[in-house]
Design a protein around this nucleic acid. Structure first.
Lengths: 215, 215
DNA sequence: TGTTGTGAAGTCGTTCACAGCT
DNA sequence: AGCTGTGAACGACTTCACAACA
């Protein structure tokens, strides 16, 4: 086992592996080879072995990997053996949807607080299982009080940097940012950007090249 | 101007450049150097020059780039000089929010049709500006009739592959996929995946390494 | 025998450094 | 003099190919 910087792409693939192993597990498959796993991910088998090699030796030569065992190992590596508490800032359309979106729960992330600049005006999630929406001025206090570790930013671009600073000063060091801006944060803070506009523009680019010009 | 394969990362950066040039434009800045632009993006200046060099020579040596001109050029390259018509499949929490989300419009993407397996049960967007939700069985006919070019998939993982196939058979060749599965599509079809769970797991990984273990 | 784990080779994207223009 | 455009150097990630081994 080596102590190296892990490439971002590797971490993302680890997520994929874990999800696919879950499926195999559900199908009653006990052992997989890197070949089979690679086919399911659309990757080269050596890629998988190299990714895993960053963290140890999980396979059995001549046999393959034990599905359940590898899955548990991956969960441990990803840090999702226990749930993380998440704060969501910006309860507009997108933010409210994420708060209501079940998808996160299965991955071990619990939205524990929701903040908005105008808590009264915020669009409420369709069901009532979510915490009351609080003003952004309460970010620092509530995040500390509730032991929240991850922040999701779904405010307009202009407000994103300010929110990021509040989150950081509240002690958060992981941010999932949906605003189309590059946040400036201390280097101990990890930011992942999700820019839906940019994703669509990327599709637009490829479609244009193929002659499928827009209306 | 060369005819090469453009790296995906380059296309994404072009989006960034276009957005930042828009900001400069708004600030009344007429000329930028690759240095200034790079600083704003957090990149190396040579990176920007290389990215642009895939498509032509847009700058003036000894001077820099004309903001408005470069911006228009980038929009042309990205294919966003005219609006694209988009279909959204899956009107659950996430899908409804995207339908209601204004962010796309500014980028020149118009959600022209929304489909769901159970159109009556689907959560309606908060405002009434959006098309009636149609059954997934009408995908092919409606997409063709309305000349839709891009599909967004926000259905559960199990349903995503089937939806992708319907979209492709309707003639769509660009898909933005929010379901956590690798879609199998013909190679003329471009798929961009947005996996929110995986993004959070990636944050989880980095937080765990830093000792900020979850609850 | 079959499949892992891994050094070496290969590929692709980034950064350097400077020639070429304005 | 200053900044772009670009070949060459570099670095990072991927794939190959095979030794190690159950």
């Amino acid at each position: 086992m080596k102590r190296l910087k892990i490439p971002d792409v590797t971490v993302h693939r680890l997520s994929d592996y874990a999800r696919i192993l879950d499926q195999f597990d559900g199908e009653g498959i006990r052992i997989v080879s890197s070949d089979v796993l690679a086919a399911r991910c659309g990757l080269n088998p050596a890629q998988i072995r190299k990714d895993l090699a960053y963290f140890g030796e999980f396979g059995v030569r001549g046999v393959g990997y034990h599905v359940g065992e590898l899955k548990e190992n991956l969960k441990g590596i990803l840090g999702v053996t226990h749930a993380w508490r998440v704060a969501l800032v910006g309860a507009g359309n997108l933010g409210s949807a994420l708060a209501a979106y079940q998808g996160f729960l299965t991955h071990g992330f619990i939205i524990t607080a929701v903040f908005d600049k105008y808590p009264e005006q915020a669009k409420l999630p369709p069901n009532g299982r979510f915490p009351k929406i609080l003003g952004v001025d309460r970010i620092k206090a509530e995040i500390r009080r509730r032991g929240i570790q991850i922040g999701i930013i779904t405010v307009p671009a202009e407000a994103a940097q300010g929110v990021a600073e509040r989150l950081v000063s509240a002690g958060i060091s992981g941010i999932l940012n949906f605003a189309p801006v590059r946040l400036r944060v201390p280097k101990h803070v990890k930011v992942r950007n999700v820019d839906l506009g940019s994703e669509l523009e990327s599709l637009s680019f490829f479609l244009s090249k193929q002659g499928g010009a827009p209306s």
